[in-house]
């Protein structure tokens, strides 16, 4: 009876292989499909608007009668909120990673790390309302002139959201630094801080940089928090106290409205989407390259 059974096993094995292949292909084709649609509509958009106008005009008013298609105000909005988020998340994330990897005892680490990671599991809509209804009023007490919708408050909250991303990935990178390097540092009379700051952090630098870039790309793509708390006014400014609009928020705004299919307003979504896609893809690729370089170093 042995041969029969192994034959049946072989058929089952083949079926599973086909199924797994199908699942793999499905996500690849979905991605390709999204890219194709983005590109197709973006090309349509650039038939009507020149690339030069898109990249240099300082007004973004596709929904008004006097239509202007300069993406700079949206870029500046995204840039501003991202920079604020990163300014919050980088120091806090890196310091938490140093604490977790170098200071926390073997008993404390497994408790703190998952707790930090819970931050990443909070729905972004909750963060959005947290920014609008808690952080903004709080900040307005300090800065009375600040508008109800602004870049600062969602930027800070976005920073809190991406802290676990930085701390967790940086901690992995620092934890992977060989113990022999720490011993070398301690054997020369380093304090804990010196060993961490002068040996472990530089040795893990590419892994830490990769975590920063991934966090930046997450902040650039974040939608809900800025849509709720940053206002929806495309404005070319670096003032964090006034309403602005990010690329993602614009896409939400137009998608929610009743923009007819095929109009220029409709196509702007795809042009902005492509821009967003190119930026985050670039950042993810660099981040990946950095992580691979790190792995080579300590493979």
């Amino acid at each position: 009876m042995m041969p029969k059974r192994s034959q049946r096993g072989r058929i089952g094995e083949g079926l599973i292989q086909v199924l797994l292949l199908f699942c793999g292909i499905l996500s690849v084709f979905t991605t390709l499909g999204i890219v194709a649609v983005l590109l197709f509509e973006t090309i349509e958009f650039f038939r009507e608007v020149s690339l030069v106008e898109f990249l240099t005009d300082t007004q973004w008013t596709p929904l008004f009668a006097d239509k202007r298609f300069g993406i700079l105000p949206l870029l500046s909005g995204t840039f501003l909120t991202t920079v604020i988020a990163v300014l919050v998340a980088m120091p806090v994330g890196l310091l938490s990673a140093i604490y977790l990897s170098e200071y926390a005892s073997e008993k404390v680490r497994p408790v703190i790390k998952p707790l930090l990671e819970i931050l990443a599991g909070i729905p972004t809509v909750v963060y959005g309302y947290f920014a609008l209804l808690f952080v903004t009023p709080l900040l307005q007490k300090l800065i009375p002139s600040m508008a109800g919708f602004n870049a600062l408050s969602p930027g800070i909250v976005m920073g809190i959201m991406i802290i676990p991303m930085i701390s967790s990935l940086s901690e992995d990178a620092m934890y992977a630094v060989p113990q022999s390097l720490r011993e070398a540092a301690y054997a020369m009379g380093s304090s804990k801080l010196q060993a961490a700051w002068r040996v472990v952090v530089p040795a893990a630098a590419s892994g830490i940089a990769a975590s920063f870039l991934l966090a930046v790309s997450r902040a650039i793509g974040e939608t809900m928090i800025v849509a709720i708390a940053a206002g929806q006014q495309p404005r070319l400014t670096l003032n964090p106290f006034v309403p602005i609009e990010t690329m993602t928020t614009y896409i939400v705004q137009v998608s929610l409205g009743d923009t007819p299919h095929g109009t220029i307003e409709y196509k702007t979504i795809f042009a902005v989407g492509t821009m967003l896609f190119v930026i985050t893809l670039g950042l993810n690729l660099v981040s990946r390259w950095l992580r691979e370089r790190f792995r080579e170093q300590y493979g």
Partner: peptide
């Protein structure tokens, strides 16, 4: 009291 280890462990610097 300085120390040298079994496996060379220079810093990646």
């Amino acid at each position: 009291v300085g120390m040298v280890f079994q496996k060379p462990n220079p810093f990646p610097k």
